[in-house]
Design a protein around this nucleic acid. Structure first.
Lengths: 335, 335
DNA sequence: GTGAAAGCGCTAACAG
DNA sequence: CTGTTAGCGCTTTCAC
């Protein structure tokens, strides 16, 4: 016999309303033809019993769960969090829930989670993570998959990210437009994808303006403020005429600004500085506040979720890498 | 008839292995007595078909979903993220999944999500968020609930957090132990719970050391670096003999350190500074790096998940507010 | 309009 | 050891 603490079922509601389970279903879902009085009686009974329709049973029957999995390759961090906020935002509006899995950079663990999500019959999957360079595909799965921030090696997969090259070019064009001629690039480790892509952007923009990126004004190091400070003094030593710096991150930019100011080089009077990330904490605390490139991570998450929902609804998923443009946010470090 | 693209079921596996569905279940779950050969045949068939046991069906049958809901009151942020990492960590080890819901500070939305999670028959619920002051309970639910970081008003609920008073006292004792006598407290907005609790901690520690917190050395403002810088100059003006500062956050502490240094007051030579949060980015970039109080947020998340799993396994959930101790992390701003 | 019956995929209980 | 049966909670024909 049913335990008295077990949640009420359609049958309990049916009994209380004096109808059949089928009728309860129709009444509560607004399907079929029901007399208003019956409908009300059922609704009342459900209310009184605190009836909560079992989503599992529905899913089992309908073959879809209204759930998508989010798999992070590395843990959640500063870059994945805004993306997840965007995903949650877009999915929540479509009444879908998200099952969260943290791969922690372990491919084995990752594979295990994919299996688990498939067992749970999620309708789709978003793969995200910090490292933007191409990573192995999860392979062909029976459900649509969107990679966001991370990039799949398989061109058949849809990978969504922001455009590093365009972003860095945007920041550079801004400096050039303000009349700067001797522009430096200070960024993260040389081997990093972002460092390289952003460098390309800087070079492209300079070339387009009949300028060039002097090799001695390209400085790469760790992604830290300390490195930015150190790079600033190096820059002034290498070329006292440097008048603009495009940075690979806001942390570095903040360090650069501090380093310049403390070396007596006015920002933006003598040197204008542009950051990358639009990370509120860095950007606002810097003196002066940083002009920076905004990769629009939350919008990216929303886009990923939207594409995924389209695919779940039967629309074909685009293929390949799609890069969204970055925006420039003006603050005092460049004007 | 079954669509050829539909995922294979136990029946498909059974047919292929030449056994019955019941046998497949036993073979794949290691229950009951099976001949090794049969088991192998089933395993092989399952493998070949790419069989993924439908978790929904299991859950429906067993009345357990091995899923817990995480409901954030505000969105995910700097404080909730480490907590969620901890939760994920502890739950993942127990092979449970997490369903993520973002209440976005909207009580209506929050209630809606609770209903949705109940419909989905989650085994338990973690409520978290940024604001540490007591908030309305979700009320009696048919599943165990743990509040973490946020605090429920209902003393019947279990609320887990870190101990602001002890944390601030710890930082203060450290300064006192290093011989500091004129200690200031610079923190966030006066009305904030954390600001008040941490002030209590500072006062208690000072009183215990036969010192006291001079009213003119208590400065409250926004949670920003800029405020910390401004507070630093005010402090030096109000009492040039100030020799220690306990700060309400690492951001403020970093501002204080910058403000002091730029006013010519050596840190830690003349003034020792302690922060709060142990936020890597702030703590490491500060000059000098910050001694700070670590609220151990990830451990808190793990604890919450552990308690919840115990409760799901039938163990009674403790009641009331349980505060975990903070740790002190020594760096150069205080020694 | 409403009820009865079948079935989603799985496991547990009981036969054999 | 393995097969058969029943049923988790719900929706969906199809009768009435």
């Amino acid at each position: 016999m049913r335990s008295p603490t077990a949640p009420p079922t359609v049958r309990d509601v049916a009994a209380r309303a004096g109808v059949s389970p089928g009728t309860v279903s129709k009444a509560l879902n607004g399907t079929g033809q029901l007399r208003a009085a019956t409908r009300d009686r059922v609704t009342a009974a459900a209310e009184e019993l605190g009836f909560r329709p079992n989503h599992l049973a529905k899913s089992l029957l309908q073959g879809r769960t209204y759930t998508v999995g989010i798999l992070t390759t590395d843990s959640f961090g500063r870059f994945t969090t805004p993306v997840m906020v965007g995903i949650e935002d877009a999915l929540g509006a479509g009444r879908m829930s998200t099952l969260l899995c943290d791969g922690r950079g372990d491919p084995l663990r990752e594979r295990h989670y994919v299996q688990e999500l498939l067992n749970r019959r999620v309708d789709g999957l978003v793969v995200t993570g910090r490292r933007p360079d191409p990573r192995p595909s999860l392979g062909r799965l029976p459900i649509p998959v969107v990679y966001v921030l991370v990039q799949s090696e398989d061109p058949e997969d849809l990978s969504l990210s922001y455009d590093d090259v365009q972003g860095a070019a945007l920041g550079t064009e801004h400096l050039v437009g303000a009349g700067r001629k001797r522009i430096a690039y200070v960024s993260g480790p040389e081997r990093h994808w972002s460092t390289q892509r952003r460098r390309e952007g800087v070079e492209q923009a300079l070339v387009a303006a009949d300028l060039s990126l002097a090799p001695e004004l390209v400085l790469m190091g760790p992604w830290s403020e300390a490195w930015g400070r150190s790079a600033a003094t190096q820059l002034l030593r290498r070329d006292p005429d440097v008048d603009g710096v495009v940075c690979g991150s806001d942390q570095i930019a903040r360090g650069v600004v501090d380093g310049l100011r403390e070396a007596g080089a006015d920002v933006p009077g003598r040197v204008a500085v542009v950051g990358f990330d639009n990370w509120d904490v860095m950007v606002e605390a810097a003196r002066p506040p940083l002009t920076t490139v905004d990769p629009n991570l939350t919008a990216l998450g929303q886009l990923a979720a939207t594409r995924l929902m389209d695919a779940i609804d039967g629309k074909e998923l685009p293929r390949g890498v799609q890069l969204q443009p970055c925006d420039l946010v003006l603050r005092q470090s460049s004007v």
